[in-house]
Design a protein around this nucleic acid. Structure first.
Ligand SMILES: [Mn+2]
Ligand SMILES: [Mn+2]
Ligand SMILES: [Mn+2]
Ligand SMILES: [Mn+2]
Lengths: 218, 218
DNA sequence: TTATATTTTTAGATTAATCTAAAAATTATT
DNA sequence: AATAATTTTTAGATTAATCTAAAAATATAA
């Protein structure tokens, strides 16, 4: 079954909005994430249900069928592999690749993406630390914890972000908070919830907002 | 001015159908090359004329404006660079890349394509011997002559094809008639216009149809 | 549990790209 | 030059994706 650019974006959005397999995603949430209107979403949900990509009960939200989940993961695989390509081979920065990958993820060819995977030597994560599904849609989610939930004196490695905006990513880069960097939590300031962390022998301060969006492997 | 996938295919088609800058391209020719109907073409021509990509006079056919030509060459540049990438980096065969490049050529990013160009070390021709415009749209057309127009005992190098169908390309590959291969014209058979050529110390026979579509640099 | 607020769906339009059938213009042929 | 053939354009519909405004269903609060 072929899927249009638009249908694929809906599937991806539903996948990203699903906290877990069972719980349904609301019409309004999809509308917001795709910058469209609820009425448009309803129309598309009917279409996706017809094509058996989603389970849709009027007024009750939607869940992905196994087929829909498979398709969503295939698009996410493509997105993340293209991001790796852009950073590793074409020297793009991690804050520059997302919008391009949003276009490239819709190129329809399993052969192309499997060859690209091989060319990149089967990367396990993308430039933002997100896991890349393999050709069967399998991937393992590493246990990452935001700095905001860590205790003092914890030592860990920066391994992911919860926020992908170029502004945030550029700030992290400038501050040296890049993937793979080892850090230690020194102290949380009670007043505003900000943190002092140590990075390469230096102590630096990061806001609570940043601490919530920086993911650590311990 | 942004252009849709469809508009870009029309511009490319008009470019490829232009024998030279001045002479106009007919509605029916465009319709045939895009597998669409003349009525649809007329609608699109009005739109492209509004956007100043073409000069359009009712019933008189169209020519590209400098803007339209620039845009067409940019798409062709992308098409051919992606073909080089697929063959050189992802190990595709020359008969497998065209349809994929038809999709990839519509990815909108000059930065991406210039970085790709650099990554590929600024190739001058694509896997089929066609010239790749540089970022300013400049390219030189090498003087290539079909085998069918060569005299006996001519020595030359296979440097291009006039027909891009996978069937033809696969036949050439199997027969050893690949780009860069040196050949000598031995004899033309008067009866059916076929040729005997020498390649790597062997004499082989090729039909007139093949001879017309194989381009040689002398 | 009735009234109010929120969410979701339907009804009806719009826009881009396409089509068929018919009309108009151009080109070729007597 | 008049007629026939061909090419091109217009008229009117269709389909996918979107929208606004109104109606219907569900959730929340008095
Ligand atoms: Mn991304
Ligand atoms: Mn990413
Ligand atoms: Mn091609
Ligand atoms: Mn080519």
């Amino acid at each position: 079954m072929i899927t249009s650019f638009t249908e694929e974006n809906y599937l991806k959005s539903i996948y990203h909005l699903s906290p877990d397999e069972g719980t349904a995603v609301n019409t309004n949430a999809i509308a917001e994430s795709l910058n469209t209107k609820a009425a448009s979403v309803t129309d598309m949900l009917k279409k996706l249900a017809d094509k058996e990509f989603i389970n849709y009960i009027k007024y009750q939200g939607v869940t992905l069928t196994p087929l829909g989940r498979e398709r969503a993961l295939n698009i996410i695989r493509k997105h993340r592999l293209w991001e790796v390509f852009l950073v590793e081979k074409l020297n793009f920065k991690w804050d520059e690749v997302h919008d391009l990958a949003e276009e490239l993820e819709h190129i329809h060819s399993d052969l192309l993406i499997n060859r690209l995977d091989e060319f990149l030597e089967f990367p396990k994560t993308d430039p933002h630390g997100d896991p890349i599904p393999d050709k069967n849609g399998k991937f393992n989610v590493p246990e990452l914890i935001p700095i905001s939930r860590l205790k003092n004196e914890t030592l860990g490695i920066i391994s992911g972000v919860r926020e992908h905006s170029p502004l945030f990513l550029k700030y992290l880069e400038k501050t040296g908070l890049v993937l793979g960097q080892e850090i230690t939590i020194k102290e949380q300031i009670e007043f505003d919830g900000s943190f002092i962390i140590s990075i390469k022998e230096n102590d630096i301060m990061i806001s609570r907002e940043v601490a919530k969006n920086l993911l650590i492997a311990i």
